[in-house]
């Protein structure tokens, strides 16, 4: 089967800065592929190379079997930029019609269902973009990207500005897309967002793809930090609990670094008298540490 998106040894430098270094990925139809990395890692550069906005120094890109350098390759593609810039003087309706006009052979069949799902009504569509909130503009950007039911969807930080309910609707839409055989490249610096919708994920750092793997493996590798305070004595052999990589005291609190299956630890905590528990979202650096030092930590455990 032809890959929906194929990058082969793509590199790009801006002056002395190596923005993308020998990147190769293949995204299959029906797949939601995560592209994860901190700001400045090269995610947006990759998307711009795919779209022909930036010229790669080396490598090849194809979209649904067509070289990405051909404008017709973008006929079946939808794109949401990270810095969404819409024409402020247009109304929402004019904006959607304008971008639909670039694909006369692909009518905007998904426009109304998406507008309904996002709760964007006619009164909003008749307002000029400049008077709309950031979140509403982001919704319009998503509709622009998806209204023509593209076969490949490129999303750069798509949840920016969306409230949690709309984010949920959006994630369901993305999963539905993939279920209908479409491919999605989901670029983000938020691990939890990628974890919720993606099947595979590429980890990007300083322009290099350091790993491509299933999200389940990513979860298994990622180090997470947990802070717990016990009202009484801590559970015995806390540091030896499976999934606990390290345990340290910080005043009255225990700082636990954990990875993998947390159930044994959770059972131990449930049996103990816990006064305070904080379990924040993992930082991206923790994800990267798993790849740069994971083997070393794994060997110790």
């Amino acid at each position: 089967m032809t890959a929906a998106l194929s990058l082969t040894h793509v590199s790009k430098s801006f002056g002395r800065v190596r923005a993308l270094d020998d990147a190769s990925i293949d995204i299959e139809p029906g797949e939601v592929f995560g592209y994860l990395g901190p700001n400045g890692a090269g995610k947006t550069t990759t998307l711009r190379i795919v779209l022909g906005l930036v010229h790669a120094d080396a490598g090849a890109v194809s979209i649904l079997g067509t070289p990405a350098s051909r404008s017709r390759a973008r006929e079946r593609l939808g794109f949401l930029p990270g810095d969404l810039a819409l024409y402020p003087e247009l109304t929402g309706r004019q904006l959607l019609d304008y971008f639909a006009g670039y694909r006369p052979r692909r009518p905007p069949s998904l426009r109304q269902p998406m507008l309904d799902a996002f709760g964007v009504g006619g009164d909003v569509l008749d307002q000029r973009i400049k008077f709309l909130s950031h979140g509403t503009r982001q919704k319009l950007g998503l509709v622009v990207a998806m209204q023509h039911d593209p076969d490949l969807l490129l999303l750069d930080e798509p949840s920016t500005g969306l409230d949690p309910l709309v984010q949920q609707t959006f994630r369901a839409t993305v999963l539905d897309f993939a279920a209908r055989g479409r491919a999605v490249l989901f670029s983000s610096h938020v691990l939890s967002e990628v974890e919720q919708v993606c099947g595979r994920v590429a980890i990007l750092r300083a322009g290099r793809i350091v790993a491509v793997e299933e999200v389940s493996e990513l979860r298994g590798r990622t180090l997470r930090r947990l802070r717990v305070r016990f009202a009484g004595a801590p559970p015995p052999a806390l540091a030896e609990t499976p999934a606990v990589v390290s345990a340290a005291r910080d005043g009255e609190d225990w700082l636990l670094t954990v990875r993998g299956d947390l159930n044994p630890l959770l059972r131990k905590l449930a049996a103990a008298d816990v006064a305070h528990l904080v379990f924040p979202e993992p930082e991206l650096e923790d994800v990267f540490l798993a790849y740069y030092r994971g083997r070393e930590v794994g060997a110790d455990a």
Binding site: L51, R74, R103
Partner: peptide, 17 residues
Amino acid sequence: ESGAIELVLAQPISRAG
């Protein structure tokens, strides 16, 4: 400057067009 060119050239129109 506005950033709109990113979205426009992501459509199926070539730079020549």
